[in-house]
Amino acid sequence: MSGAVRGASGGGLLGAFVQAVSGGALYRKSTFLLDTLGKSVFAPHIQILEDPHVVGAVGSAPFDEEGVKTQRRQVVKDGVVQGYFLSTYSARKLGMKTTGNSGGSHNLSMTSSLTKSTDNFKAMLKKLDTGLLVTELMGQGVNYVTGDYSRGASGYWVEKGIIQYPVEEITIAGNMKDMLAQIVAIGADTLIRGTKQTGSVLIESMTVAGN
């Protein structure tokens, strides 16, 4: 079924991608996104920007934890991975250069080139039409080696773009590769959670179990 994730749940998808293309996972070959530099991972309308120099933002820093100068960069362009998240150590292990990400990512935003200014939360529910709106995720059910994804969730059941009733004690499952590639839309209802920001994320299909 179709599904939409909102708030911290949308940021969680972005966080899972960051972990999968971080140096430690890459040089240990313990990630489902191994050797994806220059390859399409997301739907072609998806863009991810890292900007460590946003004034007053939580994730802003002129240097990373190793003293390497940070830089504004496009991590994903038109669905294609443009860069990893590397420290000097992990970069050396991979035969690459550091990206200034010792200590993690800085101010990531995930957007869609298809998003219109009118794509607020209500409009995203209409795009969902009938499916599950996920507002909270529980547990750590991501296998970063295979990409298999299974987490407890709660939210609301939506029919014809209108919230019908709350749901809880359910499990959503799928594979991260498929989920990233099947992002249909991102809303203009941007929310910032820590160092990550994104609007509501509409995913074409996911497996739901529970009552």
Rank of each mutant, 00 (worst) to 15 (best):
G38R: 08
Q82A: 00
A43C: 15
S30C: 06
E66L: 07
A91W: 03
M138T: 06
A57H: 13
V68M: 08
P166Q: 07
V54F: 14
Q197D: 08
S205F: 15
N107I: 05
T135I: 04
N101Y: 05
M96E: 09
A25L: 13
G83D: 10
A209W: 15
S40N: 07
I170D: 05
A25E: 12
L133R: 01
V76N: 06
M206V: 06
K77Y: 14
N175T: 01
S150A: 09
S200M: 13
R6Y: 14
M138Y: 15
S205K: 14
D78A: 12
T171A: 11
D78R: 10
Y144T: 00
S105I: 11
G15Y: 09
L33P: 01
N101G: 03
K69V: 13
R92L: 07
L128H: 03
L180N: 01
K127L: 13
Q182M: 07
S200T: 07
G11W: 10
G187I: 08
D189S: 09
K77V: 04
S90W: 00
T135A: 03
L128A: 00
M179Y: 09
T70G: 06
V54Y: 13
P62A: 11
I183K: 02
I162R: 11
R151S: 02
R193L: 14
V142A: 00
T118E: 15
T99A: 04
V68P: 03
S154C: 11
A61M: 06
S22Q: 01
I186P: 05
G12F: 14
T118Q: 10
T171D: 08
S205D: 10
L191E: 10
A153R: 10
I192H: 11
V18A: 03
V55M: 15
L128Q: 01
K69R: 15
A188V: 07
L114D: 09
D51M: 08
I163S: 02
Y144G: 02
G23F: 02
E169D: 13
T130A: 05
K127P: 15
M1V: 08
A25R: 12
D51R: 03
D129A: 08
G24E: 00
R193G: 13
D78M: 10
H106P: 05
G155S: 04
V18R: 08
K196F: 12
G100F: 05
S87Q: 03
K127Y: 14
A173R: 04
L132P: 01
E204A: 12
S154D: 10
K126W: 09
S105P: 08
L114Y: 07
S113M: 13
T207H: 12
L108G: 03
Q140D: 14
T98Q: 04
Y165V: 10
M138I: 02
S90I: 01
K39H: 11
H53P: 02
